[in-house]
Computed example of a mutant assay.
Amino acid sequence: MRTNPILTFWLAYIVTRPLGASFADWLGVSPSRGGLDCGTGVVSLALAVLIAVFVVRMTLVSRSSLRGPA
């Protein structure tokens, strides 16, 4: 089943952006505000590393699938 890539992007963006922002806020704010107080810098760095790992993994998987069976 093929999906429209533009529609898929926007649906993913609309769903994940508020969830990601809420999660990052929860990790970064102080316990008095209901968070874990990890700090915004640490949370930003951790999420940036996580995104980079996912991008590299997806790139490697995509390249290996283009080569076909070994």
Score class of each variant (00 low, 15 high):
residue 22 S to H: 06
residue 43 V to F: 08
residue 70 A to H: 14
residue 41 G to L: 13
residue 38 C to R: 09
residue 42 V to E: 12
residue 50 L to Q: 06
residue 68 G to I: 02
residue 8 T to Y: 08
residue 50 L to R: 02
residue 54 F to C: 11
residue 5 P to L: 00
residue 30 S to E: 12
residue 15 V to N: 08
residue 27 L to R: 05
residue 64 S to Q: 14
residue 22 S to M: 09
residue 18 P to N: 01
residue 32 S to E: 14
residue 52 A to R: 09
residue 30 S to N: 06
residue 68 G to C: 05
residue 47 L to H: 03
residue 26 W to I: 00
residue 61 V to D: 05
residue 59 T to N: 10
residue 25 D to T: 05
residue 65 S to T: 05
residue 13 Y to D: 07
residue 51 I to K: 06
residue 68 G to T: 03
residue 19 L to S: 03
residue 34 G to H: 03
residue 57 R to D: 05
residue 25 D to E: 10
residue 52 A to E: 06
residue 54 F to R: 08
residue 16 T to R: 07
residue 8 T to D: 04
residue 17 R to N: 02
residue 22 S to E: 03
residue 31 P to W: 08
residue 49 V to N: 06
residue 69 P to K: 09
residue 63 R to C: 03
residue 64 S to P: 01
residue 35 G to R: 01
residue 57 R to A: 10
residue 56 V to G: 04
residue 61 V to C: 08
residue 27 L to Q: 04
residue 19 L to N: 03
residue 67 R to Y: 06
residue 39 G to E: 04
residue 8 T to M: 08
residue 36 L to S: 10
residue 37 D to F: 10
residue 21 A to Y: 03
residue 43 V to C: 03
residue 3 T to G: 07
residue 36 L to F: 15
residue 43 V to I: 06
residue 33 R to F: 04
residue 1 M to L: 11
residue 40 T to R: 13
residue 38 C to M: 13
residue 25 D to A: 05
residue 35 G to Q: 00
residue 57 R to C: 06
residue 8 T to H: 05
residue 47 L to V: 08
residue 59 T to A: 15
residue 18 P to Y: 01
residue 19 L to M: 09
residue 50 L to A: 14
residue 15 V to G: 06
residue 60 L to I: 10
residue 40 T to K: 14
residue 47 L to F: 13
residue 46 A to R: 04
residue 8 T to F: 12
residue 27 L to K: 01
residue 60 L to Q: 10
residue 57 R to N: 07
residue 67 R to K: 13
residue 17 R to H: 04
residue 12 A to M: 13
residue 37 D to G: 01
residue 31 P to S: 14
residue 43 V to S: 02
residue 19 L to E: 01
residue 2 R to H: 07
residue 26 W to P: 00
residue 15 V to R: 13
residue 46 A to P: 00
residue 55 V to Q: 11
residue 16 T to A: 07
residue 28 G to E: 09
residue 2 R to L: 05
residue 54 F to M: 05
residue 29 V to F: 03
residue 12 A to N: 11
residue 70 A to K: 12
residue 1 M to C: 10
residue 25 D to I: 00
residue 25 D to Q: 05
residue 16 T to I: 12
residue 59 T to V: 10
residue 61 V to P: 00
residue 45 L to Y: 14
residue 24 A to F: 01
residue 51 I to H: 13
residue 40 T to D: 11
residue 20 G to Y: 02
residue 34 G to W: 01
residue 43 V to M: 02
residue 29 V to S: 00
residue 60 L to H: 11
residue 19 L to W: 02
residue 58 M to H: 11
residue 16 T to K: 12
residue 25 D to K: 05
residue 25 D to W: 03
residue 52 A to Y: 15
residue 58 M to A: 13
residue 20 G to T: 05
residue 70 A to G: 10
residue 65 S to R: 14
residue 47 L to R: 02
residue 64 S to D: 10
residue 67 R to L: 10
residue 18 P to H: 01
residue 63 R to P: 03
residue 64 S to T: 08
residue 48 A to F: 10
residue 29 V to T: 03
residue 13 Y to M: 14
residue 67 R to E: 07
residue 29 V to C: 01
residue 26 W to H: 02
residue 68 G to D: 04
